[in-house]
Design a protein around this nucleic acid. Structure first.
Length: 194
DNA sequence: TTGGCGATTGACT
DNA sequence: GTCAATCGCCAAG
């Protein structure tokens, strides 16, 4: 299927992009070996710019860490959470509008053995890439990859797949953002119904 | 320069 | 169900 272009991520309705990313294939190449691991995206969350209290760019906050969110769409923003977990996001909307989509979960499509090794697992279990920290670990991604372009088949990219039927998409509040007050309740988390 | 804390996970009761 | 791990970030001093 076709590579998702910058135009896909440049759409200004980040909630729509977050829904449309469900079912797409996320690929990460190990640059030393050339091996590609692929996950089918099953869960996403939208973070919508300077007015979203749960977003790292709330209130226009702009630091070295989140600078990539202010850049053009289609780039990846990866940051370290709780000192342990690396979390993968794709930057959306236009340059200067710091929106992003957190990739929270996926199912293996290719490169299973390598992902199992990275997760210290003997055989496939759903927890392989369920949760954003686990997903990044399975794919071998760290903050060293933050700022990479995510629309060319080099290190990180996404390919198209048929749209998921809206009836099969569950919406709910975002996870772990209780501090965001009223914005914590916004149904900006999207999952494929099992 | 410092201290509180987080878009989480896994181990344990 | 509870809770510790673990460290870079960043607002405040």
């Amino acid at each position: 299927m076709a590579l998702l272009s910058r135009d896909f991520f440049a759409q200004t309705d980040t909630l729509r992009v977050a829904r449309h990313l469900l079912g797409k294939h996320l690929h990460v190449r190990e640059l030393h070996t050339g091996e590609v691991c692929t996950l089918r995206i099953t869960e996403t969350e939208a973070y919508c710019g300077t007015t979203d209290r749960a977003c790292h760019a709330f209130g226009g906050r702009r630091t070295a860490r989140n600078e990539v969110m202010y850049g053009p769409p289609g780039y990846v923003y990866i940051y370290l959470c709780y000192g342990i977990h690396h979390l993968l996001n794709f930057v959306t909307h236009q340059q200067g509008e710091p929106h992003a989509i957190l990739i929270r979960a996926g199912e293996p499509v290719a490169g299973l053995q390598t992902m199992l090794t990275r997760r210290s697992m003997q055989r496939y279990e759903p927890r392989l890439a369920a949760g954003p920290g686990s997903l990044a670990r399975a794919l071998g991604l760290t903050v060293a990859d933050s700022g990479r372009y995510g629309c060319e088949p080099h290190r990180i990219w996404v390919t198209d797949a048929p749209l998921i039927d809206p009836e099969a998409i569950l919406e709910g509040p975002r996870v772990g953002v209780e501090y965001a007050e009223e914005d914590a309740r916004l149904p900006w988390r999207f999952r494929i119904r099992q």
